[in-house]
Amino acid sequence: MDTADLTTGWEPGVPAGDTIARRFVLAHVERMATTAARTGGRQKWVDGARMADLRSPYGYDNAVVATRPLAEAEWPGVVAAAAAFFPPERWWVVLSVFPTPDLAAHGLVRVGHPPLMLRPPGPTPSPAPGLDVRAVTDATTLADFGRVLVAAHGLAEAGAPAIADLALAASSHLRVGYADGVPVATAGASVHHGIVEVDWVATLAPARRRGFGAAITAAVLDVAPELPAVLLASDDGQGVYCRLGFLALVRVTMWERPGA
């Protein structure tokens, strides 16, 4: 059998739409780059990875994303480049849709293996009763978005994430859900490379188990219902996404370098 033309799907020049995983990786790095450009952040390419420092106290904003499978011998160089790129006080993460070697010897801490989930195009469920979903369009709705996101994820000591910036609200399609006039849920979505990438899904603890998490997620799916949607799920959120029609594709690998 002639194998000369077989591809892994990750060589330079392979179309973004080759696989859903490739779309996700390229969409994620494009979102990082757009966010960095609009908020005064920094970014850097190295062979096999892209880095963005959004100068955020929230580590998941400051990321190194593997853009192709990396051999075990390549990882030390990528981690060293990231350590030189990020200031010592910065909390940052490594995200790879490919298996990685144990990076603990290089100063990283394992975060886990969240599932990458896919929802095919299609209609979304009706909004949950009692939740008023609004687009983030001004300082007031942005402040509500930031407060809910920080409180729901226990980030009060870290500070506001990079997404809490009005310059990003339109391109990231941010939404806030209100119950009885009180902000209780958030979600957002970015559209790149033919997919809707969902992120920033959060519901305050007292408002959980009322369908609000599913409703706010469905609201951002409606940004482009004709496109497939992807997200990285937490263990707690996976069941909610399954009920919305998401399917778990593969578990990714995440490491972090806590700030000094």
Results as ranks from 00 to 15, higher is better:
87 P>R: 05
193 H>M: 10
13 G>T: 01
80 A>W: 09
141 T>D: 06
221 L>V: 02
105 A>F: 07
119 R>Q: 11
183 P>C: 00
16 A>F: 12
3 T>Y: 15
202 A>D: 04
174 L>N: 04
138 D>W: 10
6 L>K: 07
89 E>G: 13
250 V>I: 09
207 A>L: 00
179 A>M: 01
199 D>G: 13
91 W>I: 05
260 A>C: 03
179 A>Y: 02
44 K>H: 13
43 Q>P: 02
140 T>R: 12
238 Q>G: 14
193 H>T: 11
218 A>P: 05
27 A>F: 04
181 G>N: 06
207 A>H: 08
131 L>G: 08
4 A>M: 12
5 D>L: 14
178 Y>E: 04
84 A>Q: 14
54 L>D: 08
59 G>N: 11
133 V>G: 04
214 A>L: 04
232 L>C: 13
36 A>P: 02
101 P>F: 00
236 D>K: 10
260 A>D: 14
180 D>V: 11
191 V>P: 01
196 V>G: 11
233 A>S: 15
144 D>L: 03
204 L>C: 04
246 F>L: 07
246 F>S: 01
115 P>W: 04
119 R>L: 04
13 G>M: 06
110 R>K: 15
207 A>N: 07
158 A>W: 07
69 P>M: 02
104 A>K: 10
169 A>R: 03
52 A>L: 09
133 V>K: 09
182 V>W: 05
69 P>Q: 06
132 D>Y: 01
27 A>Y: 12
102 D>I: 06
164 A>H: 14
92 W>Q: 00
119 R>V: 04
136 V>D: 06
206 P>D: 02
173 H>G: 06
